[in-house]
Computed example of a mutant assay.
Amino acid sequence: MLSDAAKTYLHDDLRWIRAATLAKLDGLGEYDIRRPLTATGTNLLGLIKHLAAWEARYFGEVFARPFPEPLPERGADMWATEHESRAEVIDRYRRVCDHSDATITALDLDAPGHVPWWPSPEVTLFKVLVHFLAENNRHAGHADILREQLDGAVGDGESAAGREPAFWESRRAEIERVAEAVGQAPVN
């Protein structure tokens, strides 16, 4: 059996990244949280809806502990419709997290599960927890970039503390200068 300390560590990391991702919506209006900021339409509220749907599947369906509410159809989970309020999406996300937390708490890391959409569908809670933690971190990175595009907010609110806009303008200009210099060099 895998260690309870490992389970606690992974679960704590999942809780932290959930909160960090959700915090990317703080202080933004309805338009900005729904705004498509990439060619594929990626937006902050859609990321939360997507994470809720997949977390419910991974810690629900996979371990025969289905989330008791309907989930969006696959492919319709990356954006919120005009009929879904911010509060609804966030509240569903929190309920999914509570449901997932109950699954993680109740099962041992070596508890078996079945992921029918994976090529090797027989898994353990450990494998799903690591997979979903990585997936959540990936989307948190997307949220970081989207939020920076919207209002310049970066990191966890502390990592850019004390930096003036002039610092970032200078940093960006230096990086651009290097990219141009290297881009003009002959390819080996």
Rank of each mutant, 00 (worst) to 15 (best):
Ser3Lys: 13
Asp4Tyr: 09
Asp4Ile: 07
Lys7Trp: 02
Lys7Phe: 12
Lys7Ala: 09
Thr8Ile: 13
Thr8Tyr: 11
Thr8Lys: 15
Thr8Ser: 11
Tyr9Cys: 14
His11Trp: 08
His11Ala: 11
Asp12Glu: 14
Asp13Thr: 15
Leu14Arg: 06
Leu14Met: 10
Arg15Ser: 13
Trp16Gln: 15
Ile17His: 15
Ile17Glu: 13
Arg18Met: 00
Ala19Trp: 10
Ala20Arg: 13
Ala23Gly: 07
Gly27Pro: 07
Gly27Tyr: 07
Leu28Gln: 04
Glu30Leu: 08
Glu30Arg: 09
Glu30Gly: 11
Tyr31Asn: 14
Tyr31His: 11
Asp32Ile: 03
Ile33Cys: 11
Arg34Phe: 00
Arg34Pro: 05
Pro36Ser: 10
Gly41Phe: 05
Thr42Ser: 14
Leu44His: 10
Gly46Asn: 05
Gly46Ile: 02
Leu47Met: 07
Ile48Ser: 05
Lys49Arg: 07
His50Ile: 05
Ala52Val: 05
Ala52His: 08
Ala53Ser: 14
Trp54Arg: 02
Glu55Arg: 04
Ala56Tyr: 02
Arg57Gln: 12
Gly60Leu: 10
Gly60Pro: 03
Glu61Ala: 14
Val62Trp: 02
Phe63Leu: 06
Phe63Lys: 01
Pro66Leu: 07
Pro68Gly: 02
Glu69Ser: 14
Pro72Asp: 03
Pro72Ser: 09
Glu73Arg: 05
Ala76Met: 03
Ala76Gln: 04
Asp77Ile: 00
Met78Arg: 09
Trp79Ser: 15
Trp79Gly: 10
Ala80Glu: 12
Ala80Met: 11
Thr81Gln: 03
Thr81Tyr: 11
Glu82Trp: 00
Glu82Lys: 10
His83Gly: 15
Glu84Val: 06
Glu84Gly: 08
Arg86Ser: 05
Arg86Val: 03
Ile90Val: 14
Tyr93His: 12
Arg94Met: 00
Asp98Ala: 15
His99Asp: 10
Asp101His: 00
Asp101Pro: 00
Ala102Gly: 10
Thr103Glu: 01
Thr103Leu: 01
Ile104Asn: 06
Thr105Ala: 10
Thr105Met: 00
Leu107Met: 02
Asp108Tyr: 04
Pro112Thr: 11
Gly113Ser: 11
Trp118Arg: 15
Val123His: 04
Thr124Glu: 13
Thr124Asn: 06
Leu129Cys: 01
Leu129Ser: 00
Val130Ser: 08
Val130Gly: 04
Phe132Ser: 04
Phe132Asp: 07
Ala134Asp: 15
Glu135Thr: 08
Arg138Gly: 07
Ala140Ser: 12
Gly141Arg: 09
His142Met: 02
His142Ser: 06
Ala143Leu: 08
Ala143Tyr: 05
Ile145Lys: 01
Arg147Gln: 05
Leu150Asp: 00
Leu150Lys: 01
Leu150Gln: 13
Leu150Ala: 11
Gly152Pro: 02
Ala153Ile: 05
Gly157Met: 01
Gly157Trp: 00
Glu158Asp: 15
Glu158Trp: 08
Ser159Lys: 09
Gly162Asp: 05
Glu164Ile: 11
Glu164Gly: 03
Pro165Tyr: 04
Ala166Asn: 03
Ala166Tyr: 05
Trp168Tyr: 12
Trp168Lys: 02
Arg171Asn: 13
Arg171Leu: 12
Glu174Gln: 09
Arg177Val: 02
Val178Ile: 13
Ala179Gly: 04
Glu180Val: 13
Glu180Leu: 11
Ala181Gly: 06
Val182Gly: 11
Gly183Trp: 08
Gly183Leu: 03
Pro186Trp: 10
Asn188Cys: 15
Asn188Ser: 15
